[in-house]
Design a protein around this nucleic acid. Structure first.
Lengths: 236, 236
DNA sequence: CCAACTCAGTGACTTAAATCACCCGGCCGC
DNA sequence: GCGGCCGGGTGATTTAAGTCACTGAGTTGG
């Protein structure tokens, strides 16, 4: 309950109403690596992350995975089927041991009908998610792996500490395989891309701690160094 | 107004309320190729497509574009900033001459607060959009161009006529460049991929009309023909 | 303490995709 | 009629990414 109230989903709502919603939910524990549900299964409701962290992903036939989003405490999973009635859109796996609260579709819908402010909050959440997923599309379609990696590093750094400057460090406890699944690539390529950033003196790596040595340069890696493209003037 | 009522956004709502919302809107005409707004501009509201068709896309520095979604009559653009308050997430361009209705953020929000059923509808729309964008991520990260093309052809065919069988045809008035922008690729590659499908006798093309000759085969192209992957049993 | 993992690193090779540089045909507007 | 543009089609080449196959360090747990 305490967690529910802190979740972005349920900001500023009358506590008794929340308590009632929570009372209808069921708790669920997952250990690291466990699968919560699989894409295309029929969905009965959504989940709120009470502790730990869970990742939603899609996979293709030969087992390669693409992470769609990762939710920490207060985050929610499978809101989509609550509203459009379809099956689960992604598979989800616990990244660490986690506790979740399951909320049935009809309970959530009823709650939002009775609390229109909450519905607007829900819209804000979906909107933000849409933004991040659309950015992922952009990254995958228009940027190369190094650019995507640089972007991810900057995002993670900013998540921990929005004030960035040369020398800041942050921890990123992800294996190269996990990184690859976020970046839409494979382990070996991520290893080499990281290496490249290290060799260029842009970042340093100590275990799971990343040090940003040259913020400018890292940001530069984010955008393609646009082809020296013949301008109209130059052409002919 | 008639269009507003038919839009998925405003299903089953009291006509007077709709009329009032529409009265606060402003009409806007676009000619083919015209830009409505650009990604990252501050956003004041959303748009409903009254006629024509508009596409939302992102582009990188050397001008390559990735289409995020395309909206026809009744569709909406830029709902995201209405709910999360951020700037426009994508650029949008009219694919044909189009008429739009602009609705200011605060009018939409007020309307949804007063009509909680409408808020649930809005959630359903965002949810569906999230589903399609997440699928786009999956396609880009895990499928090759031919697979993506096959998927797109099947989707388009189904949009026109859900009952698919060998021999159905449909019109797809897109240039190869436009196709490429949807598929996350470039013109030449799309041309060759299409050619491949034609040579294999899977589809035929007459101008902008596509005939599906072998539905089975087309569906097969959709999924990678999974690597003969050494199973655990075989290994060692 | 050894077996069995998981994780990272790396060289060699293959391949899908992108890029470059053309050509051709149609069509539009002078 | 002709210059220009757009759409499509192609061959040749380059390049990023992915694949394969191993190595070796570090951990965990029987």
């Amino acid at each position: 309950m305490e967690v529910l109230a802190k979740s972005a989903w349920f900001q500023n709502l009358p506590v008794p109403a929340l308590a009632e919603l929570a009372a209808h939910g069921r708790e669920r524990k997952l250990s690291r690596g466990q699968i919560l549900f699989t894409a295309n299964q029929p969905a009965e409701g959504m989940y709120v992350v009470l502790s730990g962290s869970v990742r939603a992903f899609r996979e293709n036939v030969d087992g390669r995975e693409q992470t769609i989003h990762v939710e920490g405490v207060g985050g929610t999973l499978a809101e989509v089927p609550v509203f459009d009635g379809g099956p689960y859109p992604s598979s989800t796996m616990a990244e660490e041991d986690s506790e979740l609260l399951f909320l049935a579709k009809k309970d959530v819908r009823r709650f939002l009908l009775q609390h229109p402010e909450a519905a607007l909050t829900a819209l804000a959440i979906l909107a933000r998610r849409l933004r991040t997923v659309a950015s992922l599309v952009e990254q995958l379609a228009l940027k190369d792996v190094t650019q995507r990696l640089a972007t991810l590093l900057l995002e993670e750094a900013r998540r921990k500490n929005p004030a960035l400057l040369d020398g800041v460090s942050f921890s990123m406890p992800l294996s190269h395989t996990q990184l690859a699944s976020r970046l839409g690539s494979v382990r070996e390529v991520v290893t080499r891309s990281l290496q490249k950033l290290v060799q260029q003196g842009i970042v340093a790596i100590h275990g799971h701690r990343i040090v940003i040595l040259d913020l400018q340069a890292l940001q530069a890696q984010t955008d393609p160094h646009s082809k020296p493209a013949l301008t109209n003037a130059v052409r002919r």
